[in-house]
Design a protein around this nucleic acid. Structure first.
Lengths: 326, 326
DNA sequence: GCCCCTCCGTTTTACGTATAACGTGAACGT
DNA sequence: ACGTTCACGTTATACGTAAAACGGAGGGGC
């Protein structure tokens, strides 16, 4: 390469690295670029990484990419990373069985930082101790002081849901919880409890289910068949659970929203596919990924850790209506 | 590291690389491992990659991870890659706007091979010319002779759909095409046409739509409102388009499946969420990813390219029923 | 004439690993 | 006693880059 261009190897590095101004004349620089073009020359990344001590690579830790939300997070994070010349490597689904794998074993090169979802708790225990820049997504604000976090204010979304349903006259609520031990779900439960505690006459039942439509259906069917006055609104931790609520309602002969109002969280494509379309809390997954990656790159580049808040938005559609008269 | 273990650097490499049998005594090997453990020593990946000339890394080219199918492909591919000590780097969504980016610019290290979906056509033009091992997913069998392919026999799935509907007495069909210029969709259209051409009295209309529920609805609504005898079955290229068909049916006052049968392709979570549940062609995305990665690793390791066929399966649910009497 | 500066490059070095090539005692066969 | 093998490690080298250190030629100031 250097031979073809008729210059030294160092000049090649300077030109292709874009740091030649004032050191290499314009014609020579052009000659180097031309030679690189005709040869199809690409700098050896391994050598570059060895020399610079960095591969400009970041680890993204999420439970599963098949979850709509995390796929969106990846998309947003990847966009920002690419814009800064960084690459993303995914931590292989810790949600799968087996012990937490060594996150570094999955990377093709040294890591500059870690962007981790709070739902991937297993991996974090592995990551502690390595002094890598770390940014948490949707984690408890003061859980890890000093590290940047990107916080989705889902609690606020749940409060909006509660207010919306209260405004429609609902007083008897069923909360369909995702039985995943994660702060994000605990937060939702607490927000709903607190909001309803402030309303005289409001009651709250709780059911828990794994995050599939079928388990959700069973849980809701059980809770709605229990003795006592039946809840008129089901607040679900997730759109997929809301599908379960729809199915339960159908089996029990209840119409949505006439007899039973249902809400979700996420606003997946699912929400618009349902009939009636689902009232739900929209989470902007891509924005979450973007902000997370921006925060992480800030830390990597030595700036102070910032904390972002991602606003959420209640999207009212057809699955919520006035509470039925008793 | 070598100092701490009281041994030469070469011995460290041998022991940690697992190639010490017969060259290093067991006690010494143990001493090295012990030292590595206490120091938290990790081999420098950049140096290793430079020395070995490989980063054991593969590029996965898919249009978008937010598409359910491709997220599944990634999951399967990642599982196999991890089992062989390989890493996956994703090519950043070529479906996005802008010119095709340099795939190698997104990688943190040198690539050993490429696993590409046929739907990411843009990227392929970039990849041609680089003599990297390449495996295509769901691409036209003889499009790239010599390269391994993993073929989803969706044409067969469509034929099963046609036979299923014909058996239910349907004769007037509407094909809702995804207007994406990809071989996989062209293949579906051809299979349906050929199958119906063999049935006297069978008719086929076609509508095209981008892959969103709303556009699908509009396309189906238009096609069903056109003059002439109305189709009684809508065969959709995708589950998302089937959602559009449901919505169109509702707007036109048609019940599924009583007045209109609907089918999809994919079997996303969506399919079970719909009411009635969707009859669709199940594609095993994870298996596709696994087979694809296995084929690619074979080529990388110097074995002959193999071609796999992934079977598809018609899943009959509630969205198809007997053709209405005229 | 001498010193100093600027411009344009080159020479050299270090990064940390994998592995080929090279000892070095001790045991062993004859 | 002497070559041969074996078991166990070490020394030395190359990978391709980034960047610090180092000129050399030409020009300007005094």
């Amino acid at each position: 390469m250097a031979r073809v261009a008729g210059v030294s190897q160092a000049s090649v590095s300077l030109v292709l690295g874009g740091k030649w101004h004032g050191r290499i004349s314009a014609p020579t620089a052009e000659r180097v670029r031309e030679a690189a073009r005709t040869l199809g020359y690409r700098p050896n990344l391994a050598a570059r990484n060895l020399r610079t001590g960095s591969a400009r690579t970041v680890l993204l830790v999420v439970p599963s990419l098949t979850t709509h939300f995390f796929a969106g997070v990846h998309t947003g994070a990847a966009r920002v990373a690419a814009a800064h010349g960084f690459s993303i490597v995914l931590y292989p689904s810790p949600a799968g069985v087996g012990p937490a794998r060594d996150p570094f074993a999955s990377a093709p090169a040294a890591l500059d930082g870690v962007l981790a979802s709070s739902m991937a708790a297993q991996a974090l225990t592995v990551l502690r101790g390595d002094r890598l820049p770390l940014v948490m997504l949707d984690s408890e604000p003061d859980a890890t002081p000093g590290t940047a976090t990107v916080n989705l204010d889902i609690a606020d979304g749940v409060r909006q849901v509660a207010d919306h349903l209260l405004g429609l006259g609902h007083r008897r609520f069923l909360h369909l919880r995702a039985d995943v031990p994660s702060w994000t779900f605990a937060q939702r439960a607490r927000a709903l409890e607190e909001r309803l505690a402030a309303v005289p006459g409001a009651t709250l039942r709780t059911a828990a289910s794994s995050m599939t439509a079928d388990h959700g259906r069973a849980a809701v069917e059980g809770a709605l068949s229990a003795p006592g006055p039946r809840p008129t609104a089901v607040v679900c931790d997730d759109d997929m659970l809301a599908v379960g609520a729809y199915k339960a309602a159908r089996r029990l002969g209840l119409r949505v929203p006439h007899d039973l109002s249902v809400t979700g969280v996420d606003d997946q494509v699912l929400a618009m596919a349902l009939e009636p379309e689902l009232t739900t809390v929209r989470l902007d997954a891509e924005l979450t990924g973007e902000r997370g990656m921006e925060a992480l790159l800030s830390v990597i580049e030595g700036r102070a850790p910032v904390t972002h808040d991602i606003p959420v938005e209640l999207v009212v559609r057809g699955s919520t209506g006035p509470a039925p008269r008793t």
